[in-house]
Every structure is written in structure tokens, then in C-alpha cells.
Amino acid sequence: MFQRGVVAIGRLTVNGIWKIGAGTAFIGNVIARSKMTFARPRLFINEIYFAGTLSLIIIVVSGLFVGLVLGLQGYETLKRYGSAEAVGTLVALSLVRELGPVVAALLFASRAGSAMTAKIGIMKSSDQLSAMEMMAVDPFQRVITPMFWGGFFSMPLLAAIFSAMGILGGYLITVVVIGVDGGAFWSQMQASVDFQGDILNGIYKSIVFGFAVNAIALFEGFDCLPTAEGVSRAVTRTVVTSALAILALDFVLTAFMFTGA
């Protein structure tokens, strides 16, 4: 029993290390074969559509609702201390620093990331990738790399849209519905949200998340067992691994960005 536990831990470790190594090599390969993506903008544009535009609805709607909730909760709490106008600051800072990049990335992983994994997985299991290779077309350059860059480009834009929608949602609920002073809402926000320290750092975060989610989604798709079950497992792994990676990276990035000097 004890021995079996140790063996299981050992296997997990070995598999984990193998995955990290293979994943890194995979991403290196993707980036090294990027030339075609930028030589043929059509490929790139199609993938922006696939990753970005198709995620737009969920991002807009979720952003709006997160903003509405933040505004409502923030107002209820802040009004006890007589600083209801600071709700703008609260909403903006939470969104721009944390919720925007993180929640947008989580949504992106479940909407676009899983779709990428499924697409690559299906192409693999139905021999489409292999067939492409036999037609002397490199599936990396033709399929995987454009997907990577399309998703990578879309992620920060989606995060920005999410934050903007959230702030508008906060404005709607507190200023338009509850009746907090609109001027104070914006001015307090502008006074305390720093472009460099808050907004840019939030964008940097979403760029890092975008890299991670796209890399994970494509690697899981490429690495899946070429069966129906293998593909569905890979999709699950994409969502789980992406979520863990986003949250862990968020902690690390926050520790670097928002503390100390």
C-alpha cells in the first residue's frame, strides 16, 4: 500500500516533468515556425475570429455582470463608512488589476482554449494533421502556429473589453440605478487608478495568461490520444490546467508587480 503510494507519486513526478519538457519544446517549435502566420495574414485573421470574436459575447456579458455585482456589493459596504463615491475606485481597481485579466483568461480558457484543444485533437485523431504532413504542408505552420498567435493577440483585447464592460456595469448600477454622484465616481477612480502601475500591469498579466492558456490548449490538443475519449480528456485537462496556471501565475505576477517598490 505504502509502496504503491510512493510509486504513484514517482509516476506523477516523471509524467509532470515529461509534460513540462515536451510542452516547452512544443512551444519553442510553435514560435520557431511562425513565419507563415505573418506571411499569410489570412490564417492569422481567421484564428483571431476563432479565438477572439467568438469569445466576445461571453466576455461582454460576464464583464457586465461582474461589474454590476462589484458595484452593488462595493456600494453596500462603502456606504457604511460614508464613502460611497469610492465605489468607482473599488470597481476599477479590482477589475483592472485582478478580475479583468484573471476572469477573462478563465473564460477564454473554457471558451477558446477548449475549442482549440478539441479542434487540434479531432484533426489529430482523424488523421487530418498526418494527411496534411503527407501533402508536404507542415501542420505546425499551417494550423497550430496561427492558432497560437491568434489567441495570443486576442487575450489582452478580451481582458480590456472585460474590464471596460465591468466598469461600465459598475457605473450603471451605482450611478444610474442607485444614484451615486457620477462626477465623484469617475474622478475618484481617475485619481487612484494609475496608468503604469494598475492598467499596464493588468495588461501585462493578460499577455502572460494568454501565452499560458494558448500554449496549454494547443499542447494538450497535440498531445492527446487520438481517440474520441482521448480528445475529451484533453479538453478537460486544458480547462483544469489553464485555470491552475492562470491562478498560480496571477499570484506570482501580483507578488512582483504590486508589492515593494
Binding site: S126, Q128, A131, A136
Partner: peptide
Amino acid sequence: RRRMGMLYQFGAL
């Protein structure tokens, strides 16, 4: 490979 063609079991379209 450009000089080869391959037909897969289920077509792989």
C-alpha cells in the same frame, strides 16, 4: 512528400 499521395483509412478530409 510532394511526390507522394496518401489516402487515409477514413479519408482524413
